[in-house]
């Protein structure tokens, strides 16, 4: 049986892991290569680097991070943040990433999903989606880190991503992100029911049981968290033990 995946995400700026993504007062807290290596030892099923480097010139740094990580971490690596063109995708994969995560740029230019999937295969195109409820069971898609409402229906958008060749959806709920009260089960369920590609739950994990909860209440394939693992409140191993004790198959 296919195991449910637990995915730690590292926010990286200018080649350093940072706490929080909210601009001013960002604190550099570590070397991403070392952090990825530690997550690997904890049993992470994949590792995501989310690049929040602001300047275009700084963009190459994340590729060095991926290149170094790929020499000593032998689990799939995903890179998101700022990927706008097929060339960006190519450079990222060549550096050693197995997948890219496209978000705002894919909303602005959906052809990016199709072009990326046609050239490199669907398996390496993950579409990151930020969404927020506008009424019960109705959500719209946001871009630029959740700041701009695109007034696109979430369910229409994820179906379109699948048609364009996305291999996976990473669904981040703006409503639950940072609240630490658990994943957005209603939103997650709606998206999992709408598409036939794997869906990663993101945004809201605050305690041990939240991961198992997402797997027991929806058919999502994976669950992602950043700060919870980053602040060492939980290890990937602890999350997996909890899932296992509840009958969920994990590696």
């Amino acid at each position: 049986m296919l195991a449910k995946r637990i995915i730690p995400c590292l926010d990286v700026r200018d080649g350093k892991v940072v706490k929080g993504v909210n601009f001013e007062g960002i604190k550099e807290v570590g070397d991403p290569v070392q952090c990825a290596y530690e997550y690997n030892l904890q049993g992470a099923d994949e590792i995501v680097f989310y690049d929040i480097t602001a300047s275009h010139e700084g963009r190459g740094v994340i590729l060095d991070v991926v290149r170094e990580t790929a020499k000593k971490v032998f689990v799939p690596l995903t890179v998101g943040g700022g990927i706008a063109t097929v060339d960006d995708i190519r450079d990222t994969l060549r550096a050693g990433a197995d997948k890219v995560s496209v978000n705002s740029q894919a909303v602005k230019n959906p052809q990016l999903i199709k072009d990326g999937a046609d050239v490199f295969g669907s398996q390496c195109i993950c579409v990151g989606v930020d969404a927020k409820a506008i009424s019960p069971n109705k959500w719209t898609v946001f871009i630029n880190g959740g700041r701009i409402d695109m007034h696109i229906d979430l369910i229409d958008w994820v179906k379109k991503c699948e048609q364009l060749g996305a291999g996976e959806i990473c669904l981040n709920s703006i409503d639950t992100d940072g609240v630490r009260g658990g994943f957005d089960i209603a939103m997650l369920k709606a998206v999992v029911d709408a598409v036939n590609i794997p869906v990663i739950a993101s945004g809201g994990a605050g305690k041990l049981g939240d991961f198992a909860d997402a797997f027991l209440k929806t058919d999502c394939s994976a669950a992602l968290a950043a700060s919870l693992f980053h602040f060492k409140e939980l290890t990937v191993g602890q999350v997996k033990d909890d899932c296992r004790s509840k009958g969920i198959i994990v590696r």
């Binding site: 049986m1 296919l2 195991a3 449910k4 995946r5 099923d45 689990v75 799939p76 669907s122 398996q123 291999g167 996976e168 036939n196 590609i197 794997p198 058919d219 394939s221 994976a222 590696r251």
Partner: peptide
């Protein structure tokens, strides 16, 4: 079935092979 088949799944051995030397019964691969 969710497609692609993406993630870690358990190896079920059908015959022995030197490729499997040192592997246990409960091994997952990507």
């Amino acid at each position: 079935l969710v497609i692609p088949h993406m993630g870690w799944n358990k190896l079920e051995y059908d015959r022995s092979s030197p490729l499997f030397d040192g592997l246990g019964e409960n091994e997952y691969v990507y």
